Every structure is written in C-alpha cells, then in structure tokens.
Amino acid sequence: MRDLLKISARYGLIGSALIIIMFLVFYFSDENPLQELQMFDLFIIPIFVFFGVKEFRDRYNGELLKYWEGMTTGTIIALLIAGITALFLYLFVGWIDTSLLPEHIEILLGNLEETRDKIVEEMGADSYIESYEKVKGTTLRDIVIDSFAKKIIIGFLITSVVAVVLKRKELKPKS
C-alpha cells in the first residue's frame, strides 16, 4: 500500500506541476490561461494516470494489478492533480493577477455574442439571456470548482478504463 501511495503522489505532483507550468507559459505569453488550459487536461491527466498505474503494476506489484489497486492509484493521482491545480488557480487568479477573471468573462461573453443567432434560433431568446447572465455572474469560486470537477471527472473515467486494461492476475497452475 505504501508503494501505491508513493507512486500516486509522485505522478500527481508531477502532473500538477506540468499543468501549473503550462498555465504560467500561457500567462507569460499574454494569453489568458483560463481560456487555453482546459484542453491540456484531456491530455495530461490520462497520460499521468496511465503511466502511474502501469508503473505501480510493473515495478512495485510484480506485474500484477487488481482492479481496486488500479482504481485507487488513478483516483489518487487525479485527486492530487485536481486539488493542487485548483488551489494554484485560486491563489493565482484571486491574489496575483485579479484581471484574469474579468478578461476570461469578456472572452466568454464575446463567444456567446458570436453564437447569439444560433442559440436564439435553436433554444430561444430566454435561453440566450439566461446564458449571458450566468456567464456575466461568473466568480472565481465558479472557475475553481469547475476546473476541479472537470479534472476529477476526466480522471475517474480514465482511471476506470486504465484499471480494466492494465489489470492482471496471477495465473493459477493447472492441476
């Protein structure tokens, strides 16, 4: 169990660090990282969950993996990535550069305005107005919770698949 926690912590911390580095790269290249970073979750989390579970199986568990071990390892990795990056996001946007949130909201409102006719046509004017007000009222708490929840969901779904794919049991000798 100690090895499981050690591997999970290592991969969770490295994955978090990579997402934070990408956030800072976007930030210092004058992009709004709140807008750009969401796509990286779809790549980084699966990679770190897969290789974390695989390393646990191959290196520390005698090339055997039970489903619960894979699920536990992957879930801890995803929780660490989600928690650490959410905390970083809260601190950075809430304390270091508070202008990121209003910029992000303006970008979202611009995107909403571009698709206004399509939204009104497909779902009605009330739906557009409701969406506009919802986006306009976005808070830092909303952004942090959304980021955390999306990472957890992605992590859990990927972990389920990885735990099944990498699962190996001891072969019983034939009598």
Rank of each mutant, 00 (worst) to 15 (best):
Y128C: 01
G62Q: 03
H104G: 01
L91K: 07
E55H: 02
R2N: 09
F51P: 00
I153W: 02
G124K: 02
E106N: 14
F88D: 13
K172R: 15
N61L: 01
L64T: 02
A163S: 15
V162Y: 07
F92C: 06
L100Y: 04
R141G: 09
E63H: 05
L108M: 14
K150Q: 05
F88W: 07
G94A: 07
Y11F: 10
I158D: 14
L24Q: 09
I158R: 10
I96P: 05
L101E: 07
F92T: 09
V165D: 01
G70N: 03
S160L: 15
F26I: 04
K174Q: 13
W68A: 10
L79V: 05
S147T: 08
I152K: 07
K6M: 01
A17P: 12
F92E: 14
L13P: 04
Y90M: 08
K66W: 01
G124F: 07
R2V: 02
I105L: 14
G137L: 15
M1H: 02
I77C: 11
D146T: 10
F50L: 02
Y128H: 03
L65M: 05
K136M: 11
G70A: 02
E63M: 06
K151C: 03
R57Y: 05
P102R: 13
I143K: 13
I20Y: 12
E121Y: 02
I119P: 03
K136H: 11
Y132L: 11
R57Q: 06
